[in-house]
Design a protein around this nucleic acid. Structure first.
Lengths: 139, 139
DNA sequence: TACAACAATGCAACTTTGTTGCAAAATATT
DNA sequence: AATATTTTGCAACAAAGTTGCATTGTTGTA
């Protein structure tokens, strides 16, 4: 498992550091999306806040993680699929945010439908974010 | 025009105040979505920052405006259609954010396609946000 | 129209979130 | 193992958002 993580970093031409390994493994273990705050809590003062900001930024630029827009001023991040390359994200799956527990899922099974835009509008990225109740909070 | 604005406030059982009239008319005049910062600038020290926060919050609760999720930690707000009621928003149109000029459009012509979710997931709200280049920034 | 009841505003103080520059430490390269 | 490069932590700051409370403004009623 640990080997896998350093491989990912190497693959994206990033030097192997403690913080990058730790933060990347957090995403790996959690499975779901994480906000900056989540990472700060889970790494519990292991790293400086600034380091987390910069690491996330680097990961996004390199195509290791992608952002998920939200309406509550807490952008979330999730692991990209292999197809993602630096600068060009291909995350055409749906994201689901649970109103109860706050967990953010990547619904890989469902892909974002293509949308026709009015003349002159050119789409670069499309995000479909659904909020509601997840399968754990549902009774 | 001014009559219309007070009517909207009255219709949602809100008392008519200067700040509410001003902020609501800003949305009306602009047509596009506005972030908190935009409103702060456009009302140029006419009101306290706190008042703007609270006014926006009230408008969302009452169903006068709705939020548009973004990936840059600057939630935007736009006028709801008539069908929106307090607590229940029905904004099933697409939102477009221009990467160049930052303008956020409500693309009313296009409606959000329905999506099948895995078992146990119940959707309350669906947001389709597209970013790219708008028809003004396109040459 | 004036008055009482209520709601909204402004202010101050504070918390949280995000940013920048620079010296120290860690990583990579030879 | 030694040097060049990158990353980190610290400090200081800027921006964004929140809360309590006294003051002001709004509404409904007499």
């Amino acid at each position: 498992m640990h080997v896998k993580i350093t491989d990912i970093l190497r693959k994206h031409q990033l030097s192997i550091t403690e913080s990058r390994k730790k933060i990347l493994s957090l995403f790996w273990e959690t499975g779901n999306a994480l906000a900056h705050g989540d990472i700060e809590q889970k790494s519990s003062d292991e790293f400086d806040r600034v380091t987390i900001y910069r690491t996330l930024q680097t990961f996004v630029e390199k195509g290791i993680i992608h952002t998920i827009p939200t309406s509550d001023n807490s952008v979330r991040y999730a692991l990209c699929k292999d197809e993602c390359a630096a600068g060009h994200h291909h995350d055409d799956h749906v994201h689901f945010i649970c109103d109860d527990c706050g967990t953010t899922y990547c619904i890989d099974e469902v892909s974002v439908p293509k949308v026709k835009l009015p003349k002159g509008f050119k789409a670069a990225q499309t995000d479909l974010v659904i909020s509601g109740t997840c399968n754990k909070c549902e009774q």
